[in-house]
Design a protein around this nucleic acid. Structure first.
Length: 813
DNA sequence: AGCACGCCGACT
DNA sequence: GTCGGCGTGCTC
């Protein structure tokens, strides 16, 4: 028997399957989806591999005698089902990722095997043959890791002794394997000499050991450095470090990079009778006429109860369910409903769990103790064996697209998984993404409409205020008269108010009135935001901050002014105009501390807050019955981003924010202030008219050829050296253009760029973009070219330029 | 990534 | 001649 393995190795060159022979006594345990340990490479280093395929016959070109045997089977139970192994291969191709990247996404990066060399003392060692200290130590311990021994005595000092003892049979070295909850590691090179000896050591080193001297000098000023950094700084390969290590001057160690945990508890949430609309949707999905569904339901139409009952019915059939929610929606409020109904049959799965917690939840699912998984996008990989249902709530949310390799779309993966495992897919949204709705219209998804709010309250009334007119009428404040009066009225009635603005800080940028100079971040091509509370300027892209200036750094003028609006300024204005109201601000700056997020929401719930001011953060999933007024200070911020999704985002944002008002029998009102009241995404949001928005937007998409009328591939080339970034970006572009023009079939493929990214420089890295528009059926042919581009990452590693490819990115800026 | 191989220059 | 540094190419 032979096994094809994906070996745990991050190099692109080794990102393929390797064939090993299965010793006959191991055949019984061998299964696809289990991990094994195999000797790999010249050094036969023990590596972990995942069994992807088992076969009796060997591919031609492989010589059976030359195959190495599998050494050890790691898992008792497979960590992936056959279907998941197939999904693994599919994801690797679809998103141009490596096996290891995909495996680490699918299984919790908690479990892995480590092999260590262990020294076993077979007979007492005579202190006269070797270093007496070493002998004494060995005799006292009997068994120890070779690693520790090297650390204690220095590798160079003991190497010969160890070899001799081995030959004499006094000790034996064996490889011992143990499971370890893997933390994130980074290799560091540590100094093993005294800093004052640096000069002395540099002289002793060979005159040819230029690189080694450089490293010694570098390390004389610091105790350790990450290996990556060191290689870049000295511009050398790791054989230099190896040489130094042999001399005992440095040592490489793995250092842990750690994370943070979460924890909570719940009350029972009982079943509710479905209303007519809910019942129809439920019956339709249960009827099994279709496998993929889209519930288009207004906020408050009671989608969650439908989800709960679908899960219940799946449970009765013995099937498992996955509930996906966007990052921000995974609040205690949401969790309570699911855990309150299904108790400990629910597993929670998201990226903020600690390794231990994640591993526990994962095992709960794989071993069948949990039947319902709820979590963010990674929960789509829940290790169930009898999956019946995947629910994806707020389907349109951006957080469903991963920004790390593999840059997968949770929707695509969910679809693929449902296909492979015969499960049903249910998408839900009040504002479906244009792509999804298009597919529903064309019959790929069964479209289910829920137009009524479950509590039968009307949707809130939305007033659009043209801020140009306000200004014309002499109102220079950030509140229109309409909003101001409404706030007064609601405060008098002791009802709650939410004010929304899409940018934090006090003012968006600071500029000099006499020379026009705008203060920019030193590392990014972006203006700095003024934060009044700390009286500092902050860059929202890299976090750099400095003291607010009193005079222009260019011309010295004292007329520096902050322009534009942030939540801090809104807060200040609110306090000024409504001094008696209890005001609270909720944005990235006020929720920095752990649980501060929940604290604010609890105070809101307890009505200790009259006016809540916030960013995106408050637009989703919050359900406060006493909020009757929502004010959008400026709606245009998200509209003016040069991205084809900007109108869609704006419509979704407005609709969601508006949905925060009038969740109870109290009448809700929404005031949207804007400078572009005629824009279709704002107009249609005002009328709660998704259909009208959709029909206009789909025309724009068709006209300019954007999804769903094409697939997009975003290639970003980025690095510290502007000239190399540009050079490599144009190399990338011309390679792609070449292969497109040479092909007969790729007539419809457009290659745009290279163009500088909207924000050309972030954290001192220059960014160039190439955009490809292609038909879906052309993708596989393009992939060959794209795959080759990724090897540029290795070719240009020295230049520190990277090429990153994103299939259907969530934005193209 | 990480290992051995092998070329090449310096030193005995 | 020999030793060691360091770039290169391969991994079932």
């Amino acid at each position: 028997m032979y096994a094809e393995l994906a070996v745990d190795n991050t190099s692109l060159n080794t990102d393929r399957l390797f064939t090993y022979s299965v010793p006959s006594d191991m055949e019984f345990y061998m299964e696809v989806g289990k991990r094994v340990l195999v000797p790999f490479g010249r050094g036969n280093k023990l590596l972990e591999g995942l069994v992807v395929n088992l076969k009796r016959d060997l591919d031609s070109g492989l010589d059976a005698d030359k195959l190495k045997p599998i050494q050890y089977v790691v898992d008792r139970e497979p960590i992936m089902t056959l279907e998941m192994v197939e999904l693994l291969g599919w994801m690797r191709e679809r998103y141009l990722a490596k096996y290891t990247e995909v495996i680490k996404t699918i299984v919790p990066n908690g479990i892995t095997m480590k092999a260590k060399k262990v020294v076993k003392v077979e007979m007492a060692i005579d202190e006269t043959i070797v270093d007496p200290e070493l002998a004494a130590y060995l005799n006292s311990k009997k068994r120890m890791a070779l690693e520790n021994l090297k650390r204690k005595f220095g590798e160079k000092n003991i190497q010969k002794d160890i070899n001799r003892l081995c030959q004499m049979g006094c000790i034996e070295i064996e490889e011992s394997v143990f499971q370890q909850v893997k933390k994130q590691y980074e290799k560091h090179v540590e100094r093993r000499f005294k800093p004052e000896d640096a000069d002395c050591i540099a002289e002793t080193l060979s005159t040819r050991a230029v690189k080694q001297v450089e490293i010694v000098r570098l390390l004389s000023s610091r105790e350790s450095i990450s290996k990556k950094e060191l290689l870049q700084a000295v511009n050398t390969s790791d054989s230099t470090i190896k040489s130094l290590e042999k001399k005992g001057l440095v040592e490489t160690v793995e250092r842990e990079v750690d994370r943070n945990p979460v924890g909570r508890e719940v009350a029972h949430y009982s079943k509710i009778e479905l209303n007519e609309a809910q019942r129809m949707v439920y019956d339709e999905i249960e009827s099994l006429k279709h496998t993929k569904h889209l519930i288009h339901g207004v906020t408050g139409s009671g989608k969650t109860e439908v989800y709960l009952q679908l899960i219940e019915s799946a449970l009765e059939r013995g099937e498992e369910s996955i509930v996906l929610v966007p990052e921000i929606a995974l609040t205690p409020q949401t969790l309570d409903r699911f855990m309150g109904r299904f108790g400990d049959r629910v597993a929670i799965y998201h990226s903020k769990l600690s390794n231990g917690e994640r591993y526990d939840e994962w095992r709960k699912m794989r071993d069948g103790r949990a039947k319902v998984a709820i979590g963010t996008r990674s929960a789509v990989f829940a290790p169930f064996r009898n999956l019946g249902l995947i629910i994806m709530d707020e389907e349109h949310e951006q957080s469903y697209k991963s920004s790390m390799n593999p840059k997968y779309s949770t929707l695509e993966v969910a679809e693929k998984r449902c296909e492979l495992e015969g499960a049903r897919l249910v998408l839900g949204s009040a504002t479906p993404s244009v792509e999804t709705y298009y597919r529903a219209e064309s019959g790929e998804f069964k479209l289910l409409e829920m137009n009524l709010r479950a509590n039968e309250n009307p949707l809130p009334n939305i007033n659009l205020i043209d801020m140009r007119e306000e200004l014309y009428n002499g109102n220079k404040s950030i509140f229109s008269r309409e909003l101001y009066m409404s706030m007064l009225e609601k405060l008098e009635r002791r009802e709650q108010i939410i004010l929304f603005l899409n940018s934090r800080g006090f003012s968006k940028f600071v500029s000099c009135r006499s020379c026009g100079h705008v203060i920019k971040c030193s590392r990014c091509d972006i203006s700095m935001t003024y934060h009044a509370e700390e009286n500092r300027l902050v860059c929202h892209y890299c976090g750099e901050s400095r003291k607010m200036v009193t005079e222009c750094p260019e011309c010295g003028s004292r007329y520096v002014k902050h322009m534009g609006l942030g939540t801090q300024k809104v807060e200040a204005e609110v306090r000024k105009h409504f001094p008696k109201a209890a005001v609270e601000r909720m944005d990235l700056d006020t929720t920095g501390r752990k649980h501060s997020h929940e604290e604010i929401l609890t105070r809101m719930k307890n009505r200790e807050i009259d006016i809540l001011i916030g960013t995106q953060m408050i637009s989703k999933g919050l359900d406060f019955p006493d909020v009757t007024l929502v004010g959008v200070i400026i709606a245009d911020t998200s509209l003016n981003i040069p991205d084809y999704k900007a109108p869609e985002r704006t419509f979704q944002l407005m609709t969601q924010v508006a949905g925060r008002a009038g969740r109870s029998e109290l009448e809700g009102r929404v005031v949207i202030q804007t400078y572009e009241p005629d824009h279709y995404s704002i107009q249609t949001a005002k009328d709660h008219d998704y259909m009208s928005f959709y029909s206009q937007e789909i025309m724009v998409r068709k006209l300019f050829r954007y999804p769903p009328f094409c697939e997009l591939v975003d290639i970003t080339v980025y690095g510290r050296e502007e000239s190399s970034v540009c050079k490599i970006a144009s190399e990338v572009a011309s390679r792609v253009k070449d292969s497109v023009s040479k092909s007969e079939t790729l007539r419809n493929v457009e290659v745009l760029g290279p163009n500088p990214a909207l924000i050309y420089r972030i954290k001192d890295r220059y960014r160039m973009k190439i955009l490809i528009k292609a038909r879906r059926e052309d993708m596989s042919e393009i992939k060959t070219t794209l795959g080759a581009l990724l090897s540029l990452n290795e070719k240009y590693a020295k230049e520190q330029v990277r090429v990153s490819i994103d299939i259907n990115p969530s934005s193209i800026i």
